[in-house]
């Protein structure tokens, strides 16, 4: 499922993520800064196992709606930001593959950095998404979980 508007592209799907596609899409003629953040599946966790892959699970419509709320707040806080794209992968994500990509374009770098950081931090706190960590011979829900909050409740 995908929400693609003039300056906002949100997607939650099982398709592999291509960070360059998001960076290219957000780039505008008047933007001197494009910040791209990739959250990547890593091999370490709180479990004493080498993690070989992650399995993400959500309700796609609910997750996309909450990501769009994050984008709306980011655009409100950094009105000079020209475009934002956020994609989150679901299903199996193997070690070293991106699980989430945030791309932000702005005329200058400060706002692009700040808005991108806000978007990934807010996504992790406000979007209903669950990660199962898989190792050879076992798996468990990530212990790095926190109570979900509304994006409007996050401190500026």
């Amino acid at each position: 499922m995908v929400v693609r508007e003039e300056n906002e592209w949100v997607a939650v799907s099982a398709q592999p993520l291509r960070p360059d596609d998001l960076a290219t899409w957000v780039t505008r003629a008047d933007c001197g800064a494009v910040v791209t953040f990739c959250g990547v599946a890593r091999s370490t966790s709180s479990f004493e196992h080498e993690i070989v892959e992650l399995e993400y699970e959500t309700d796609v419509a609910l997750a996309e709606s909450r990501i769009r709320d994050v984008v709306a707040v980011a655009r409100d806080r950094w009105p000079v930001v020209r475009a934002i794209a956020i994609h989150h992968r679901i299903g199996t994500v193997k070690n070293r593959e991106p699980a989430v990509v945030v791309a932000v374009a702005s005329p200058h770098r400060r706002e692009a950095f700040d808005a991108a950081q806000f978007c990934i931090d807010a996504l992790k706190r406000t979007v209903p998404m669950w990660k199962r960590e898989v190792w050879e011979g076992g798996s468990a829900w990530s212990e790095d979980a926190q109570d979900i909050v509304d994006v409007g409740d996050l401190a500026p």
Binding site: G39, T58, L123, P128, M129, W130, K131, Q146, I148
Partner: peptide
């Protein structure tokens, strides 16, 4: 009604 446990996205 959605039951929303602590989240771990990203």
């Amino acid at each position: 009604i959605a039951v929303v446990p602590p989240v771990s996205g990203g």
